[in-house]
Each structure stands twice: as C-alpha cells, then as structure tokens.
Design a protein around this nucleic acid. Structure first.
Lengths: 361, 361
DNA sequence: GCCTATGGTGAATGCGCTTTCATCCGTCGG
DNA sequence: CCGACGGATGAAAGCGCATTCACCATAGGC
C-alpha cells in the first residue's frame, strides 16, 4: 500500500483525462466503449477504488442515510454473555427493538439506492455524533431522544431528520424543534388490550407497571390503559402502580413481586409497558406457583420474538418496528427529493393486539 | 435550505480564519477559550454541520467501518409479515445471523471511535457495492461470498478487508486472494455434538441434513459429523443424507419427512446443519406424534435464540456471531494502525455444544 | 534591553472527484 | 466545397475541510 491510486493515476495510465475516468464511473454511456474498456482495465490493474469522500464532496451528496440510537449496551451483561455462561435471553431480546429498525431501514434504504450508517450515541465527546453521522449522510433517523435537542435543532436546519418514537416536538415549549416524526399508536394499542382484559375476560383488578424514565411512549401506553379503565368504570391512579428504573426482565420480576406482596388481594392482571418486564414477571409467578393465566393474567407490549416463545406465550401489543424503519427511510427520501420545505410530517403507525395464552385466550 | 454553511461562513461570521474554525472542531484546546466560544456561537447560529466528506477527503480517513452481507430478504415473507398475519418466526429468526454480526461490529466499532456502514449486496449495477461501501470506509468486513471475488481482490489491495465465515482464500487456485479471515470451528463443534449423541446417548443411526449450496461452513460441519461417526466405527456416506436448497424451517420440515418415510427403521437422530431446519423438523415430528427426544433426537447448529425457545429446547452448537463481528472490527482496527503489510491472519473462534432437551440431556 | 521560547492565529495548499464549458473532429446538408 | 452540427474528450474550477508554515505578540532569560 504505497499511495492509493486516484483518477489521475488511472487517467495517466489509460491515456485519457480525469474527466473521462470520472465519466466511466458516473455515466458510462457517455464514453466510447473502447475508451471505457481502456479505463476500466487501467483501474483494475492499479486497484483503483473511487473515493467516496471526494465524490461526495464534489457532488454534494453521499448516498447514505443514517440512524442514531441509544447505547443500550450493558457492559456486564455483555461480557458475561461472551464468556459463554448460559444463554443470554435478556440481551438477545433487548436488542431486537433497534435491530428491527435497523433491518427495516437497511432494506428500504437499499431499495432507494442508499446505504445505511448506524451509530449508537456515545456520551463521550461533545460533537461526536454530529461529526460521525450528520456530516456523512444525506439524512438520518434518530431513535427517541438519543441526540441532544440542541444538536438536533442545528442539524435539522440543514438535513432531513426524522424522529422515531419519542416526543413529537422536542425542545423548549416556546421554541420547539419541529421534525418529521414517526410513532406507533401506543395509547390505542394499550387501550384495546386493557379493554380486552376487562370486557372479554371480565378482569377488574388491574395493575400497571411502567418506567420511571420520562418516556412519551410509556406515558401514552399508560394513558391508553387509563382510558380503558375509566370507560369501564374502573378507578385508576394517575400513575402506574409500579414504576421501574429500567424496563428489563429483572425489574419486571421485581415489580411482580412487589405487586403480589402488596396489601389486600393481589391483582388479577399485571400489565407491563413492555415484553421484557412481562417475561420477568412470568418467572416470578412460576417461582411462586401461581399459574398464568388461571391465577394471574400477564400482558406485555412490543411484540418481541421472545414474547411468543415463553410459556405461556405472552399476550401483547405488536409494534411494527421494522415498518417504522422503512417509513423513516421513505420520509427521508421524499424530503431529499424536493420536499425540503414542506411542513413536518407526523406519522402514527397502527399497532395490533396479539392475543395469546397469557391472558387466557 | 438555501446554501449550507461552511467553515468559510462560520469564519467570516466569527471574525477568524477558517483554520481556526477547523481547530475548534478538531483540537479545541489549541484555541483560546474566548475565540472558541465565538466560533461555536457563530456555528450554532448558522446551523453549521461539518462536512464529513470534506473532512474525510482532507484527512484521508473516514472513521467508518463497513459491513457487506448478502441479501437475505425474501420479499414475499416480508410483505406477509408486514401485513400482520400471524407471527413471523422464520423471518425474525433467520435475520439474527447477520443481525448479531452487525451488533457485534457496531459495538466494537463504537469502542474504537468508528461508525458502521452497512449494506446488503445488491445484484444490480456493476460497481455498486464498491462505490457505496468500499470508497466510504477505512476498512470493512464481508460476510462469506457477498462480494464478487474479483472486486474483493482489487479492493483488498487498498483497504483492509476481513472475510467472515466462507472460504479462507477465495479466487482461483493459482491466484488466490489472501484476506484476513474469521471463521468458527464448524468441524470441531459438529464433531463434538455428534460424538455426544453417539457416546453419551448411545445413538447409532444418525441422519445428517445439509444444504445444497456450496457452503464451506456446512461442508465443515458435515466433515466434523463424519469424523465423529468414523471414530465410533459408524459407517457414513460421503454426503449428507439429505441436502436442501435453502436452510429454512420449511425445508427442514420436509427433510425430516423424507428421512422418516425412508425405507427401514427411521433414524434415531436427525442432525441439521442449522437451527432453522431443526425447528422445522420439530414441527414435522410433532405432527406425526413422535416424541423428541424419546422417539427421535434432533439437533441443530448456530444457537439462535429460537433454538432455546422451542419445545423441546434444541441441542445445538452455539456460534459466537457477535464475537465474530467484534473480532472483525478488532482485526480491521489493528490493520489500520500500522499492520498494513503483515501476513493475512486467520482466526477460528471456538464454538460450544449446548446440550438441551432435544437430545435427551 | 536584546534574544529566544511559546501560544495563538492566518495564508495557502492540496485531498480526489464532479461538472460546466470549450475544443476538436468527423459528418451532413446545401 | 463550406459552415453547421453533434458526439467524444480535455481543461479548469471548485466542493469544504485539515494541515503545514509563517507570523505576531507576549513572556521570560540573560
């Protein structure tokens, strides 16, 4: 690897100008076949690989879309899993959320001729994410509040940005940042699920487990739950019955214990704001000899693969995460094709209640 | 979006030179705090986002690593899944192979300060992949034979490339392309698993199901199987007992049926070259009222999450896919840090037999 | 009080490519 | 036989940044 060959080298070797070399790659038909072959041969001999940077710089576009997502990784769980001790259910399942989005975006991006640049937010350097992603892509998606609002504000003035889940309009109330936005019908889904438990299964004593973080998604889910309860004349508190720190299996197991150990009769149904926690609860219940759904009903939210693998299979609300990734790309592509100054769009994807064994269906 | 601001605009607005603006981003400490603030303020006002392209061009590196993987997508399965009809087990599980690698690479890349550019191979334009990925990254990994050997040959002369799984040295025999290479101990794993069935469970009539494609991985697994059989004095054919086209659940189910319907006593154990097929076989067996493992033993290979969710849980060989992704990044990073002209490395990652219910453990 | 460090800054160059615009040559109509 | 015309190619001007190198001021050192 002395010095990597450039258009100049290829041009010289094939006896043409750099403009022609460029044409061979960008618009082969505009070059005489014979000339083209000469150039390609020279390129092959030299091991010429066009510089994406130079190309992007000169043409003012990269052909790459980006995705920023939060740093879910738990270093401890990670190393433990790597060590090969036991199966790593939590980790595998937990990742699927962002994985599905990646998958969806990748596929849609490919259809439109884009590649996908992914980066998890690093809490390190100040402008790390901006530099790493925003500067290298034509547009990108951000998972919830991965990127500081202020940065988003600056970037979104120059590049299409679509926010996935999370708040509709981040930023101060007086100066909101308006972005394209895609979310799922969290409230609708949970409302329907709760309604199902109440009306179809005749359950009345429901307990809801949400998260402590300020998550618009979880709030919306709880709101749906509340609405369904109110509609059925069931009293509900203003806040979830239990709030956990992280929405993991371990926390779900703990929350279940808390609810069962509470005063009075235990709830007939434990509703969790995600599947992870619900699965954790299943373990707790099994450990205590309580049968699901005969003794207690358990439900989740998300529809991760794990939810249908556990016994009993989990009744949950399926989120179309892959579709969300795809829609994000579609939106970005639309923006890049001349819709720059249209008003921000907000898309709400429908969810579906998946009735499985854990609610008695 | 009139014209996007550049260093020049920021420089002018803050009354400094472009060199200083550049310093503010690349090496903040080398600029007086007061000057720095001025610059950052101007940048904020203008909505300045440094151009990754220009940066990469000037500094001759991108800070991005790449991954090319095959286009697994099955459009039909896809749309069906999106339509929401039923759960989509096959799809979810099938993707995990590359997802795990992505995850591993992403994480390792992040640790080293790189972002990850992913692209599935498109059979379209000639130099698509090269242009899209190779030109934009500092180095990249290729999953098996995703990229035409000839392209790889050219690219690898200029960029670190590591091949994941697949052949050790692609290319013509007389002119092999030597790349860094990471694989798993396919033969070891299968040998150990087969040995386990023979010695620990006393099974003798084993049937192996592989794939028809020319896959070095599957070949290696079958070789391990063969060795274990020979070592135990059991006769085996030169080829798998059944070869399927794609290694899917459906094909696995079909293969199981074929084996059970064969002449004479049916095999005591069905060994599959991956988990997908084994899971499919489980369905077939259940449908016929055969108990696993009492009537038939079933094993897989890969250790995908699905393998432990099914009933009975599948005995299999776990591949450290995530680790493979991580090692790929480590290798690339090492190359990028001055090991350019070292001999190609080949790394074989250990696998582990996971004994679960489907073999009687 | 002169000379040398030292830290902060600006001028200028080049990274490798795309993209007009101009040029050249051969061809065709008159 | 001449000018117009069209296709293939070359010349040259950036694209936005990093990076010497030179420069200037100030701070010490003698």
């Amino acid at each position: 690897m002395t010095t990597t060959p450039t258009v100049y080298d290829v041009a010289e070797r094939s006896g043409v100008s750099i403009a022609t070399v460029s044409r061979v790659y960008r618009n082969p038909d505009s070059v005489r076949a014979q000339t083209r072959e000469k150039v390609l041969a020279a390129a092959r001999e030299l091991g010429y690989v066009p510089s994406g940077n130079a190309r992007g710089l000169a043409s003012r576009s990269t052909g790459v879309l980006g995705l920023c997502f939060p740093d879910y990784s738990d270093p401890d769980a990670e190393s433990e899993a790597e060590a090969g001790v036991g199966d790593e259910p939590d980790d595998n399942a937990a990742m699927l959320y962002s994985d599905q989005i990646i998958r969806g975006m990748e596929r849609a991006a490919r259809r439109h001729g884009y590649a996908l640049l992914i980066a998890a937010s690093l809490k390190s350097g100040p402008e790390t994410l901006v530099a790493k992603v925003a500067g290298r892509v034509d547009g990108f998606a951000v998972l919830a509040r991965t990127v500081p609002t202020e940065e988003l504000e600056v970037i979104s003035r120059r590049r299409p940005v679509v926010m996935l889940a999370g708040p509709r309009e981040p930023g101060e109330l007086d100066r909101p940042v308006r972005l394209d936005h895609i979310q799922v019908a969290n409230a609708d889904g949970q409302r329907e699920l709760t309604r199902h438990l109440i009306e179809d299964h005749g359950l009345r004593r429901l307990a809801y487990v949400g998260s402590a973080e300020d998550s618009p998604d979880v709030e919306a889910r709880f709101r749906g739950h509340t609405e369904a309860c109110r509609a059925a004349g069931i009293a509900v508190a203003d806040a979830p019955d239990v709030r956990v720190g992280m929405m993991t299996q371990a926390e779900g197991a703990r929350a279940a214990a808390t609810l069962l150990d509470g005063p009075g009769e235990h709830p007939e149904a434990l509703l969790f704001a995600n599947d992870q926690m619900a699965v954790g609860a299943l373990h707790t219940l099994e450990g205590r000899g309580l049968r699901v759904p005969q003794d207690v009903t358990v439900t989740g939210f998300d529809g991760i693969p794990l939810s249908r693998m556990v016994r009993p299979a989990l009744t949950t609300v399926r989120q179309p995460m892959r579709r969300m990734g795809e829609e994000a790309v579609e939106l970005l592509v639309r923006r890049l094709n001349g819709q720059e100054n249209k008003e921000p769009e907000s898309l709400t994807l429908p969810v579906s209640v998946v009735r499985r064994a854990s609610c008695g269906c």
